[in-house]
Amino acid sequence: MEGASYQRFPKVKIRELKDDYAKFELRETDASVANALRRVMIAEVPTIAIDLVEIEVNSSVLNDEFIAHRLGLIPLTSERAMSMRFSRDCDACDGDGQCEFCSVEFHLRAKCINDQTLDVTSKDLYSSDHTVVPVDFSDTSSGFENPEDQRGITIVKLRKGQELRLRAIARKGIGKDHAKWSPAATVTFMYEPEIHINEEMMETLSLEEKTSVVESSPTKVFGINPHTQQVEVVDPEAYTYDDEVLKKVEAMGKPGLVEIYAKEDSFIFTVESTGAVKASQLVLNAIEVLKQKLDAVRLSEDTVEADDQFGELGAHMRGG
């Protein structure tokens, strides 16, 4: 029994990688692992977000709690989050959560003095830690023609004479606690489809029939080769498992003309990050967090010992 192992060796292939986006293939593992990774990325990879707001002056049109909520939702760069402490188990500050090991302080001061409306944005937040700042989208090609137009995330707009002054504390947290701590905008995976066309049967079809098969799919999965006039798979991943083609083929009285299977050990992931951590780092952090979780559910020594004792006793009582 010793030395037995049922370990798998998953394969990864990255198709596309940007700071806030990743698309990759994961093979030779099962849906439980793929789904665990997805769930961890969304709800359990830590980031830093504003958690406590002390408002000094607020004469804006938005009430205090409304502004506090908006501040909480601003993504902050969180490369440090994995190594940072949660305030609840920080022993340096007895749980008030305001020390340098578990928190970052922000200040915001804005007052509108002229007739033009003043936009208070994430750029107006001053951080006590240069590694934890509001996410900056301006260097990415985000579609702003003029860099001047790009001024961060709007928090509130001020009219002449209105003022906003506050202090905010950002802390480490996870998406399970509140969605503001989730580093993921979207994480999805799909089974890789395997599409078979019965060529012989397809040859018996007229061009109109072939076209109707191709057009029965709501997404562009199939196409007709202009030279050979054969039905071909153009993009298998466009298939949404809608069964429309299979129904069409069935209705034509040609079952088996097209067959589609989901490969059960092959997944295509798309990961979009909020910008708090890079998409590639998000995946790596998720693997690390999942490893830590598994480590935490190992049986403790005393559980094993207690069982050894009572186990023998139990065997004895069973008449062993």
Binding site: M1, A4, S5, Y6, Q7, R8, F9, P10, K11, V12, K13, I14, L17, F24, T29, V33, S280, V283, L284, I287, E288, L290, K291, L294, D295, V297, R298, L299, V304, D307
Partner: peptide
Amino acid sequence: MQAYNLAINDLDKELDHLKAAFEAEV
């Protein structure tokens, strides 16, 4: 208990492998 420990060890090793594979891809 043996089966449970084995399952956790195998998953842990699988994730080690996955992490190394992903880092190499990055």
